[in-house]
Design a protein around this nucleic acid. Structure first.
Lengths: 207, 207
DNA sequence: ATGGATATCAGTAGAAATACGGATATATCA
DNA sequence: TGATATATCCGTATTTCTACTGATATCCAT
């Protein structure tokens, strides 16, 4: 029996997921959490096999949640539901060790397939997601250099009006390192100033 | 019997809403639509009393949908579910004649109350929404002063990644003047850095 | 006509960002 | 193994932005 933790700050989504999963006899929803923090707390006190989580969360975002959860519980399987079809986001969470990424608009059709795949020890990538990623690789002739997950992390903190010193403190790294990341962000996105980075973040739905 | 149209591009949300509304005997879900366009098309061919719609849509956003729907069908009641708690957005849809605005995270608790209110001929504003709006009105005492057209002009040039010197050259004014305008922009929008100004510009659709 | 907002300009100082130049360690991949 | 990418760090210099202090002139409304 697969023990499942549902994570979403919208109770109605939790409800929808619950009723959807109730048709399966091979798993049981052990708990639900309305934030990434609550999810991590629950994982620490009870064994969970599969976490199904939203990307957008009130406290920390899905990328950070996957990173923390996977580092603490390497055997935990994670399925992410998200409304973002941006390659930058999908790439970042993929690299963080996510097992399945499903666009919310296809959740109803694909979630069960994803669970089947994961229970069989495989990853699941929805057609739409792979299409997006393939398309990205094609069009990546222009901006061949994808942003790394660390760079995306820095960029997100920048959009929160933090300066380099504050970001350095937050991430426990040197201010110099933050400056290097910023320099590389400017180079990769071909932006002249931080302002351009913020626009890039909006364009790629990192905000 | 209230005839309801559900609009959301995420099938699982539609599912959740349906199962939630199934407990009520005073209404019936007549149809569902996965985009604003489909919703408007359906409204034209069948009488609907109440539309429950998401704000974020693939084609046009919730604001535009409310405007069009209300202008074509003035008697139609509309409840909006949204993840955005931005005063600018809430204010805009309110002015467009929306009957209820509910944050998705509280949809489960509040949707039924909203329906009750609307069937009783009233509007429904959730506590969270009114809190946001009140806060906005309070803080709008501070920046009761809208941005001047000159300031907006400067802000737009800022979003184009121009620095103060370049803006000064472009407008044939002193760099000092540009800096004064920037200072006033920061003060009026209560932003700490230029990054905040860019976000302000996005929020207020100056970009 | 006095106060307030607007738009213009200035000096000085310091904080922050950017531009250069590097470096090291690790991991992945051909 | 060698090349590449990533993530980390450092010094120096310059540019840009922000903070603080002013100023003048116009316009508008009470």
């Amino acid at each position: 029996m697969t023990k499942v933790l549902l994570v979403d700050d919208h109770a109605i989504m939790i409800d929808g997921l619950k009723s959807m999963l109730s048709t399966r006899t091979d798993l049981r929803v052990s708990a639900t959490a309305s934030s990434a923090g609550f999810a991590l707390a629950y994982l620490a006190k009870d064994h969970i096999d599969l976490m199904i989580t939203d990307y957008s969360m009130p406290d920390i975002d899905g990328l950070e949640l996957v990173k923390r959860a996977k580092s603490q519980f390497p055997d935990l399987k994670i399925i992410m539901l998200s409304m973002h079809d941006e390659p930058a986001i999908i790439n970042a969470v993929m690299k963080a060790g996510l097992d399945a990424y499903i666009l919310k608009k296809y959740a109803l059709e694909e979630l069960s397939h994803a669970i089947d795949a994961i229970q069989a020890g495989r990853q699941y990538w929805s057609p739409e997601v792979t299409r997006v990623l393939l398309h990205e690789e094609k069009s990546s002739g222009l901006h061949a250099n994808e942003l790394t997950s660390r760079e995306i992390e820095i960029l997100k903190l920048l959009t929160q009006e933090l300066n380099s010193r504050q970001i350095a403190e937050k991430l426990f790294i040197s201010e110099r390192t933050v400056e290097t990341h910023r320099k590389n962000l400017l180079r990769k996105t071909q932006c002249a100033t931080t302002i351009g980075l913020i626009k890039y973040a909006y364009l790629h739905k990192l905000i």
